[in-house]
Every structure is written in structure tokens, then in C-alpha cells.
């Protein structure tokens, strides 16, 4: 473990170009996919939690089912759709960062949606009764609901980012873990481990954890500032 920590520090201090490339790809994939998942999942979760409409229960069940989708199944599905025999082969997205982001969005959005749906369902009825009783129109009610959801939005983002940065199954299948192109931290760890280079694997793991810790600290500080 000690040698892994030394190796991790050495890689960072020497500015290892491959490591920097892996870090940049990881950041791009994780931040973009978690942000897109947030933009889709928040309104969808709020809609499912706050409104009653035909098909709502079916959508909720579908979303909860998708939450449990194994990443490799998601990866396989996208591989089949975008590979040389798939219906979307002409888009030429297989083994690109773009498809890795799309696959992660599909994996993460149900988590964000469910988190928002659960929170919104708890507050929607008393909030609606109170706001409607005060004579507020639908837009003001919506504004108040969004204001109530600030903390859950932060929590959902943390959840989405954590899932995105730690995910390996889908990104390795659709990205192919190509060095200097689609290799992210998790796929790189897998590669080094498969080659028997445990020290470098653990070093990358430590860097991944540190990166996740830093993002969590920044978001938690922002959340705390908002609560003042």
C-alpha cells in the first residue's frame, strides 16, 4: 500500500502525460454525464413526485427498474445498437467519449429521477395546499417547489457524479478503453490489474478516490453556504 501511495504521488508530481489524459477523459465523461442526467432527472423526478397523470405509476415502476440495470447490460445494449451490425452504426459513435457519456446518462438518470421523485412526493401535497390556499398561481407554486428542492438537487448531483466516476462496465464496453482516447480511471485500473501491475492499479484507485473526495468537499461546502 505504501508503495502505491508513493507511486500515486510520483505520478501526480511528475505530471505523467498518460495519467493527465486519463484524468481529463474521466472528468469529461463523469462531469458531462452527471450534469446531463441532472438536467433530465430533476424535472422528470419533480413531475413524477408532484403531479398525478395517467401512466405515472407505470413510469415510476419503469424508472425504478432502470435503476437496477447492470452497467454491463447497458454497455452491451449500446454496443449492439452502435456496432457494425447495429441500427445506429452510421453514427460511428462506438469507442468514442460521446457514446460513453450517453451510456452513463442512461445509467445515472434513473437514480437522479428517483431521488427527486421521493423528495418531491413528500412535500408536494402540503406545499400545494398551502400555496394554493394563499392564492398563488401555478408558476409561483412551481418556483416555490424548485426553491424547496435545492438541497436534494445537490444530493442528486453528488449521487450522479459518484456513480459516473466509479462506473466501469458500460464505459469499458462502449469506449473500449483505448489509450489516449477513451481510457478512464476505472478502465485503466482494470487494464493495469489485468497486466499484473497492482501498484499502479492501486495508485490510480487512490487518485480516483481523492478526486471524488475533492468534488464532494466542494459540493458540500456549496450546500452548506446555501443553507446559511
Amino acid at each position: 500500500m505504501g508503495s502505491s501511495i508513493r507511486k500515486a504521488i510520483e505520478l501526480i508530481l511528475t505530471g505523467d502525460k498518460e495519467l493527465l489524459n486519463i484524468l481529463a477523459t474521466t472528468a469529461r465523461v463523469s462531469l458531462t454525464s452527471s450534469l446531463i442526467a441532472l438536467l433530465i432527472g430533476i424535472p422528470l423526478g419533480m413531475l413524477l413526485g408532484a403531479r398525478r397523470f395517467p401512466g405515472r405509476n407505470a413510469l415510476t415502476v419503469l424508472n425504478r427498474t432502470l435503476m437496477g440495470m447492470p452497467p454491463v447490460v447497458c454497455g452491451l445494449l449500446f454496443y449492439m445498437l452502435f456496432s457494425g451490425v447495429g441500427p445506429f452504426r452510421h453514427l460511428q459513435l462506438l469507442f468514442t467519449v460521446r457514446l460513453m457519456i450517453i451510456a452513463q446518462v442512461v445509467l445515472i438518470t434513473p437514480l437522479v429521477t428517483c431521488s427527486m421523485e421521493t423528495f418531491t412526493a413528500d412535500i408536494a401535497l402540503p406545499l400545494r395546499e398551502t400555496a394554493k390556499g394563499l392564492g398563488f398561481g401555478p408558476w409561483k407554486r412551481f418556483g416555490l417547489l424548485v426553491n424547496e428542492c435545492v438541497y436534494p438537487i445537490f444530493s442528486s448531483y453528488l449521487l450522479a457524479f459518484a456513480r459516473a466516476i466509479a462506473e466501469v462496465g458500460a464505459v469499458s464496453m462502449v469506449g473500449g478503453a483505448i489509450a489516449w482516447k477513451t481510457n478512464v480511471m476505472t478502465t485503466a485500473i482494470m487494464q493495469y490489474t489485468n497486466r499484473g501491475n497492482f501498484t499502479l492499479g492501486i495508485a490510480l484507485g487512490l487518485i480516483l478516490l481523492t478526486l471524488s473526495l475533492l468534488v464532494n468537499i466542494v459540493l458540500s461546502l456549496m450546500q452548506r453556504r446555501l443553507s446559511r
Binding site: I123, P126, T130, G133, L134, G135, L144, N147, E148
Partner: peptide, 24 residues
């Protein structure tokens, strides 16, 4: 008719007491 209604369990919005009151 303009109808106002105060429910049994009224909701406290995520803001200060005075801002809650000033909402109306």
C-alpha cells in the same frame, strides 16, 4: 370569489419567517 385557505398543517417555505409572511 377570492378564497383564502389555511390548511391544518401549513407549510413553512425554505426561507426566513418574515420572508414567508411577506410572500403574501
Amino acid at each position: 370569489a377570492a378564497v383564502g385557505y389555511l390548511p391544518q398543517k401549513s407549510y413553512a417555505f425554505r426561507m426566513s419567517t418574515e420572508r414567508n409572511i411577506a410572500l403574501n
